[in-house]
């Protein structure tokens, strides 16, 4: 209990500190008028929350489908928006299975057959490890400000919380599958609460909810992401962060096919 208390206290202090910084920023913004540029900044900042310049994390991914449910223990390294390695730790039968994202390419390492295969472009929209996330999510999801024009669609109270709702419209030439993305961000602590993804006909395809705010490695972050596909709301994929370190000592060389195969 004591540990939790200390943790909790630290979290409160930090979030209070953050709130005051945000408030300061906001009052400045209020004076200067919140321009499209700062909408971009906020979305970019939210976008970078779980990533930092580089990061290492241990997460679980719980997948619920109509036919089965399963839980994967994963270890994730990332660098910038272009590089990441995800390695499966659990279940043991699949341990060692790993995915490398380097630039726009995705490679999978399959320990059972000891082979590395490249995911073909036609399969980028396919499910990653049976989850509701696609390979494309892993590669492109991290480029919000590059691929989208961002506007504030709503600003004000939602259920007693002051929020922004950003309208993200893909730039004409952006390689994006969504027609539009709406992201809600709480004003007081700049925490994302949900993001809704619409197809090109304006139909809601899926919703990602962010929850369980915790301080990890000095940052307040949402530690759960729950993706719910609209066509089958009983299904979901939830990613829970257990440990996360930001700005670790890692460089591009780490994200190699050789490292993908290496068992730790």
């Amino acid at each position: 209990m004591a540990i939790i208390d200390r943790h909790e206290r630290r979290r409160r202090v930090l979030s209070a500190l953050r709130v005051s910084v945000v408030t300061l920023t906001l009052s400045l913004a209020g004076v200067l008028g919140l321009s499209a540029q700062s909408a971009r900044d906020i979305v970019d900042q939210v976008d970078r929350l779980l990533r930092g310049e580089s990061s290492w994390s241990r997460v679980t991914m719980e997948i619920e489908t109509e036919h089965w449910s399963r839980s994967l223990g994963l270890e994730v390294w990332s660098l910038g928006v272009d590089y990441a390695i995800v390695r499966v730790l659990e279940p043991l039968r699949e341990a060692g299975t790993a995915t490398l994202m380097a630039d726009e390419e995705v490679w999978n390492y399959l320990p059972r057959v000891d082979r590395t295969i490249k995911v073909p472009p036609s399969l980028m929209m396919g499910s990653w490890m049976g989850s509701h996330f696609t390979h494309d999510d892993l590669v492109k999801e991290s480029r919000m400000i590059e691929d989208y024009d961002i506007e504030i669609g709503f600003e004000g109270d939602r259920d007693g919380v002051t929020v922004w709702e950003f309208e993200l419209t893909p730039k004409p030439e952006a390689p994006v599958v969504w027609g539009r993305v709406v992201q809600q961000v709480r004003k007081d602590d700049m925490m994302p609460t949900w993001a809704r993804y619409y197809d090109e006909d304006g139909g809601l395809v899926r919703t990602i909810r962010f929850g369980e705010l915790e301080v990890h490695d000095g940052r307040l972050i949402p530690t759960t992401l729950t993706l719910r596909p609209e066509d089958n709301p009983s299904e979901s994929t939830t990613v829970t962060y257990h440990e996360i370190d930001f700005d670790i000592d890692i460089d591009v060389d780490f994200f190699s096919l050789r490292n993908l195969r290496a068992r730790r």
Binding site: H67, W68, R70, L110, R112, V113, R115, M129, G130
Partner: peptide, 16 residues
């Protein structure tokens, strides 16, 4: 060749 196929238990079936 490696054959990879989504399996009915949610795993990624793969074999040579």
């Amino acid at each position: 060749v490696v054959l990879v196929a989504p399996a009915a238990d949610g795993s990624m079936g793969n074999d040579l």
